[in-house]
Write a protein that binds this DNA or RNA. Sequence first.
DNA 1: ACTATTTGGTCAAGCAGATTGACTATCGGA
DNA 2: TCCGATAGTCAATCTGCTTGACCAAATAGT
Lengths: 147, 147
Amino acid sequence: MDRDLLDLPVLLLSAARALVDGIDAGVRARGFADLRPAHGFAFARLAGDGATVGQLAEHLDVTKQAASQMVEELVTKGYVTRGPHPQDARARLIVLTPKGWACTRAADEAAAEVLRPWADTLGPQRLAALRADLSRLATPGRLRPTW
Amino acid sequence: MDRDLLDLPVLLLSAARALVDGIDAGVRARGFADLRPAHGFAFARLAGDGATVGQLAEHLDVTKQAASQMVEELVTKGYVTRGPHPQDARARLIVLTPKGWACTRAADEAAAEVLRPWADTLGPQRLAALRADLSRLATPGRLRPTW
DNA sequence: ACTATTTGGTCAAGCAGATTGACTATCGGA
DNA sequence: TCCGATAGTCAATCTGCTTGACCAAATAGT
């Protein structure tokens, strides 16, 4: 084991943080200043066909109560709505509002913007290789980092 | 910009989390069950010649009060001591105790242990390349991810 | 069909880790 | 020698999350 691989944790963390911070800043700059990165993780799950509170909780790796609270906040802010669930009357389906969709598009743009200098630095080849390598390493677990 | 580069954030986050979680688990398994990853970031700064509360706060990207609180906790648990600062009577120098050093060694071992399967998966060549690429991307900013 | 258990969600209270604000002691330059 | 800046702590507060209790609807067992 190469000795200086030991700072790989630090590098990984720095890169991850730079990325998330950059995206967050981009999203705020586009007018969505009342959101945190944690909300972005929620949006990622809701995009598509929506999700229940329970599914969201699992995705975010928090309790249902915490997820429910966040949903309440997002409803208040106008990013999502709670509707009846087509298959289960107990459950409620959370879906993005137009504002919520606009925000996810903004996030995609922001992400692309942050990634652009990375592509410039490394070249598209090595960036793609980086992505490929990471995809072989990353366990498909939760991603919320509550440290 | 390649379209599927957009999940690089997710991959980066997964990898970072897997790494930190793995190290944390390894540290706990070695008998230091009363510490969280956040403490590890503090230890990283204290290893060497120690640091003041202010320096620690900057490193962790928290207020001095928060850092002071953590130091108090680490003192209580026996990992660090507060000593007088050689150059400044206002400041106090925080240094690791033998127990603190033992813990940092444990963390290094744990990190190596987590990295080993990574080296097996990617091969030493590409792992080194990964490290090199990341080191070109990572801004030398804070790493504490409080999302 | 009828009851019992499980599951989806919310309400309420409490905790942990951070923040802001106020204060003391010391440093260092005019 | 004074006075603003800096190191650190004490105290109060905020926020996001957890645990615990609960209701309503779904599902399983008989």
